[in-house]
Design a protein around this nucleic acid. Structure first.
Lengths: 345, 345
DNA sequence: GTGTCGATTGTTAGCGCTAACAACAGGTTG
DNA sequence: CAACCTGTTGTTAGCGCTAACAATCGACAC
């Protein structure tokens, strides 16, 4: 599209010469300043169009100190939740005229987190958004002194730093209450990895709800988000059920959908029927969830909304406003893996 | 960590003053130029460390014309393949000292693609990597005249533009041959969406292999990557099998793992056993694939490698080398959904 | 001792842009 | 008619950095 051969970038002054004005007037037009005579403005705009002028972001950044770029620090971007949140963030950022630079943590350590933030600072991003929910990286955030605004997405509430988060406890409670209301005496729980903030939140919500209902709190089975661990958990719970150890296993709340998939398979292999013998609730509502057999009842997290709110919070922060972030609330999606409690024949 | 209150950025001259040299000498140290006396270098480095100096990327970009940033245009980043490739790209870019800016296409149209590239050009990225495999966006790439190097990842071979791609045809052939070698008379195929380049490649490989083996080429069933379409395809194929229409259905090559999941469920519901009645091969090798019941035989794509090669190609291009890209070869991963053909009782 | 070379350092001039101020119209107002 | 606006434009300076060139110094050869 551009003239071949000499694709040299042209500047304000080229446009100025063409339009017969000073470079500053062109700058004013480009930035939409008032106090430019309509006729002049038009002439300049035409020159811009004819020349195909594009302002140089680096020069602008140098003088304004703002790159209109947001840095996103993340890990596990290959998982559904973070990927979906990235989508929401990028879209919202773009809508606000910002672009998104991404750094992926090699490991969830404080050092890695610090390096990533440092790199962004050197890049002069306007703000850094941290999307990570694991172990030390989260801890690091709390202590971080950053020369640019640093906001966290998707960790638990944190009073030391602006935060956007999905209320995992509400989600855990939602799943648990749903099962209790169906008449189950108690609800078993397959957790996520212990260093995940989300896993902890869901666990807390589950336990609180059981306690509130006066239901026994069974021992949890630990998973790691992956289907295999869900499968293992399913075998474990099936064994408990068939042997009659501990509270009766008629309802299971699994901390994410992938593990629920594994668990479903394990129950099937064990000859147990869902939801007739055991009811199952997952978490996330991944796109596949509705197509599991049976279709999975789960708790939906609105990741896109999370991304949107994250950008909102950043922008407010950049404008100097002290925006308070409401948590995003998860929502129960009832499908076919949950049903009324039935005494086992 | 930085001094509170006045987090003003400090520059080359601050360091220069502290070390008792000129700003240029500091610049030389920072950029690792030779011809700096060891003692001076050390003094400067100490000053840098003490002051916590960080070079200003914008100023550097202004004068060098390079931002050391790569732009990634993509869509469907919430799917496993693209997300995984993003991971590989980011890591390789970072290792080479580049950072990655991401733009997500709202739709796979030429206009959207052009806008995204334009935004990157305005941002003065050093190069743009297009990671998209759908319809018009791909077509757009072929015709694109861009003022910065533009390379494509994960579309088919394209002689008009540097390209990194997984050889989908080889993958399709691999899956098909595996099934034929197990003694199946022919192999049925569930495709991806018709506007996907990958889907087309897999289809081509499948057909070529059947023709080469002199096997009948059954009518394909169209899917759209999602599990539901795999489920529908499974029902369709089960019906064909049970009614005896067309070539015998004993082996199915499904164009991705998610659809294979749906198909597996449908076959199960229809009372068919995998692999005894029907063998199934997927594509991608998503992390869950090994935990399906039965564990899915599939074709693995090395997305991380794809990302790495993408960056390699870009860097070669930026150095003015005309690097030729070998395709990344997919690999068959045999698990439990495939077995020898057995005449149905 | 003088010339020459190389290694080291400093000086200068921008990169393309915006902010601050200066300049100058034309229309007020007293 | 001078003083004073207000709207429009141009001029100047400088953001922080690197590249090109200039300057300095000691070493070495003749």
């Amino acid at each position: 599209m551009l003239p071949e051969g000499v694709p040299r970038a042209l500047g304000l002054s080229d446009v100025a010469a063409r339009a017969g004005v000073s470079h500053q007037t062109v700058s004013r037009v480009v930035n939409g300043h008032p106090n430019v005579a309509p006729s002049t403005r038009e002439r300049v705009q035409q020159a811009i169009a004819e020349l195909g002028y594009r302002p140089n972001a680096a020069a602008r950044a140098l003088v304004t100190g703002s790159t209109r770029t947001l840095g996103l620090v993340t890990s596990h971007i290959n998982q559904y939740g973070p990927a979906q949140t990235l989508l929401g963030l990028e879209k919202a950022a773009r809508a606000a005229g910002y672009s998104l630079s991404v750094a992926v943590l090699d490991e969830d350590s404080e050092v890695a987190m610090r390096e990533a933030v440092d790199r962004f600072v050197a890049q002069s991003v306007d703000a850094v958004i941290a999307l990570s929910t694991y172990g030390q990286a989260v801890e690091a955030l709390r202590r971080f002194e950053s020369p640019v605004p640093l906001i966290a997405v998707q960790v638990g509430r944190d009073d030391s730093r602006p935060t956007v988060w999905v209320d995992q406890e509400v989600g855990g409670a939602l799943a648990t209450r749903h099962l209790l209301e169906l008449g189950h005496r108690t609800v078993h729980h397959v957790t996520g990895p212990p260093d995940s903030m989300e896993a902890r939140g869901r666990l807390l919500g589950w336990r609180a709800e059981l306690l509130a209902a006066g239901a026994p709190v069974p021992e949890v089975v630990c998973g790691d988000w992956w289907p295999q661990s869900g499968f293992d958990a399913g075998r474990e719970l099936a064994a408990r059920l068939l042997s009659g150890t501990g509270p009766e296993v008629t309802a299971v709340f699994v901390a994410n959908d992938q593990m629920a998939l594994g668990l479903l398979n394990a129950l099937h292999v064990a000859g147990l029927s869902v939801p007739d013998d055991v009811s199952v609730v997952g978490f996330d509502d991944v796109p596949e969830a509705g197509y599991f057999t049976p279709a999975l009842t789960t708790v939906r997290q609105d990741f896109a909304e999370l991304g949107r709110r994250g950008v909102q919070l950043v922008l407010a922060r950049l404008r100097g406003q002290a925006a308070e972030a409401e948590p995003v609330l998860p929502r129960l999606v009832v499908r076919s893996t949950t049903g009324p409690a039935r005494p086992r024949g």
